[in-house]
Design a protein around this nucleic acid. Sequence first.
DNA 1: TTGTAAGCGTTATCAA
DNA 2: TTGATAACGCTTACAA
Lengths: 338, 338
Amino acid sequence: MAQGKIYVSALEVAERAGVSRSAVSRTFTPGASVAPETRRKVVEAAEALGYHVNQLARGLMRNESGIVCLIVSDMATPYRSSLIKALTQQLQNTGKIAMLVNTDRSDGSVDLALRQAIRYRADASIILSGLPDKSIADLCLKSGQRLVLINRNDDQEGTLKINLDDREAAGRVLTAFVRAGCERLAFANSDARTPSLMAREDGFVDAARAHGLDVIVERFGGTTYESGKILAQKLLTRSLRPDAVFCATDLLACGLLDAARHQFSLSVPEDLCVAGFDDIQQASWSSYDLTTFSQPVEAIALEAVSWLADEMDPAVRQSHSSRRLHAELVWRGSIRGG
Amino acid sequence: MAQGKIYVSALEVAERAGVSRSAVSRTFTPGASVAPETRRKVVEAAEALGYHVNQLARGLMRNESGIVCLIVSDMATPYRSSLIKALTQQLQNTGKIAMLVNTDRSDGSVDLALRQAIRYRADASIILSGLPDKSIADLCLKSGQRLVLINRNDDQEGTLKINLDDREAAGRVLTAFVRAGCERLAFANSDARTPSLMAREDGFVDAARAHGLDVIVERFGGTTYESGKILAQKLLTRSLRPDAVFCATDLLACGLLDAARHQFSLSVPEDLCVAGFDDIQQASWSSYDLTTFSQPVEAIALEAVSWLADEMDPAVRQSHSSRRLHAELVWRGSIRGG
DNA sequence: TTGTAAGCGTTATCAA
DNA sequence: TTGATAACGCTTACAA
């Protein structure tokens, strides 16, 4: 039990300033009418006393906590952490504050996180990984909490879904591979089967088929560097070795590249063309120099936060509940003939 | 204004269960005395209604919000994000929840973050970057909010300071360099001059001097990959080229390694030995294979969180207010003769 | 073990 | 513009 928390209250400020507590309240409520002289006295007293509005109480009254809950797994990953950074920053810019909840791969863990969001009466929850149970998501929505899903698709009504044009992006890599003269194509995926990963895979396979080409698909583990190395083993030991691999994420691509060069002594892009997805920092490092797609993290964060800030009636909100953002191809040296 | 948030309250649960609201409250208060039959009725009603305790109201009454504020800059960086992950996880394990505040390099930004922590009546704040103004830190402490400083040193009383044995670690790299037969030593640092970075630098320089060796010190920019590349330019174009560089962080080391190999065509560790600090993921990637020091993130998080959970009177807490953790040398291939 | 009632620090309503 | 007063949803003596 944390003891002895003794913050100064509006009442003390009011007494010191010689005004009513309502005057104090108004002084700290943007847009409330308070005489300049009164405001001055209040501000002075507040500063002298070290007064800070109690957001717990304010949230209770206003029915608006200012809290937005970020629900994430694998948050130490380059892409995830950059998204978290963008989101917290944008939230702060609009006067909100981020609460961060870690989830693991287990099914109920998103639900648990959402329950925590409800307990703290978060104004909204942004889900970066996993998918909540329908019943708990419904509870959030019914309670007036907004829900944003990033890179998942789900038919929940009243939520904002932000996605990329993964399928189309996959088609663009294929074109690049074909132009580079590649013929034996492969796709390296994790076995997680999340919507965005599958969209990249399907998009690539379909586009290849349209060109009359086949794709070797391998899936393994999570979207990690280590999985990338293993996928390299599986792909590069084949009798008909692929000459182009599209990796579902940059992390996979980095692992695959390292294995290709150091274990299989292949030259990139001469012997093997590689593309990734996410444009994490490391993709630009000269050891990788990876051609990839940039995740528009700032744009994603902006979409999410401005949708949250938007005051619109539920009907309108619903009709604007899905955003598709563009993943830009970032040309680097891992595909021939950029 | 978020409208229409309509959560079910304890009163509604009480009515449905046919008990008083205090019975409901007690049911959700661990260790409160309530008859099994009453509890059953309450739990049933709560589940049917989708009731969740309002932490805003509970925090107001109990004078304990359950919120811990994490104050961080450069949170998308590998080391920082892994520390954030460990902290949020451990906090969740003890029933607390993390609030995340982004700071930039500017001076007042930590103060602003701390003010936010005060407004939400956070039980504690953990500062990972920057240093608060004494007056505001005092306000936190006086208000009963606990303060944890990671990798900063400051003489604030009543705060927990967690540090590593940076100086000693630096001495251990020096020994390794000397054993490897290196003679022209260099230290690559950012110009940020934070306590831990300076401790590594000073420790290295002093240890070298004790061996009768000089150290070329270069400082530039932030602790980033790009700075590492620039530092490589500065160090490796010297007429007497260093044959060993200790980099203040792994990110610097990665940049320096890439420049050394790709721009200066040097072999590591044959022509140049390199060591880093932090043991970020990328240090273990085969393109880097960097000898470095591991940041004991889990141990750091554990120290912080258990100190927060500890109920002790202020006097005792003060005498236990500083922890020094050990940074373990992780041997990889960037120094000869491991 | 249970219920009643007071109080936590705010804001919103409504006269003045 | 200002001040009293009633909420907000909860916990916690205190009494039953």
